[in-house]
């Protein structure tokens, strides 16, 4: 897949940065002239992935969250959200709808379900004690105004 444009950023796993992260990803992708719906789906999916890093990966510490957003040929968007936190022991279980390890914080357990529903594919790689990488891929509609 030919990558046409790319941006990356890193920031502290503070909850105040959740809004920054989804807005930054959306701002970068504005060049593709996405629909309001597509942009909202991307913002929501990024927000879920970043929140997972804040709440789970770095549950008792502040670490770095790394985001890379790529635009590939054919209006394909690839977003990687990576942390160097505690990792996920059982990825299948973590991705089960309504499964949460933080019910006391009113986490609904729907983060991965939302990511799956709002993007075309969600891939998770994780290593306990080393961190997790979530890769979201989404094909945006080609709009005629792009020429």
């Amino acid at each position: 897949m030919k990558i046409l444009n790319e941006m990356s950023l890193s920031f502290d796993s503070r909850s105040a940065n959740e809004g920054f992260a989804r807005s930054a990803a959306a701002a970068f992708l504005a060049q593709l002239d996405p629909t309001v719906g597509e942009l909202n789906e991307i913002r929501t999916a990024v927000s879920e992935a970043v929140t997972n890093c804040v709440v789970h990966a770095y549950r008792d510490e502040i670490g770095k969250i790394f985001i890379k957003v790529q635009i590939a040929q054919g209006n394909i968007v690839i977003i990687r959200i990576r942390d160097k936190g505690c990792g996920i022991e059982d990825i299948d279980r973590a991705m089960e709808p309504l499964y949460t390890t933080a019910p006391d914080q009113e986490r609904s357990g729907l983060g991965f379900s939302v990511m799956q529903s709002f993007t075309d594919s969600v891939k998770v790689r994780s290593s306990v004690g080393h961190g997790t990488t979530v890769t979201l891929t989404k094909h945006l509609s080609l709009r005629l105004s792009n020429g």
Partner: peptide
């Protein structure tokens, strides 16, 4: 103007 699954948790709670 924006809500992620945290909003679901808020309503459920």
């Amino acid at each position: 103007n924006f809500m992620d699954s945290s909003g679901i948790g808020l309503i459920m709670g």
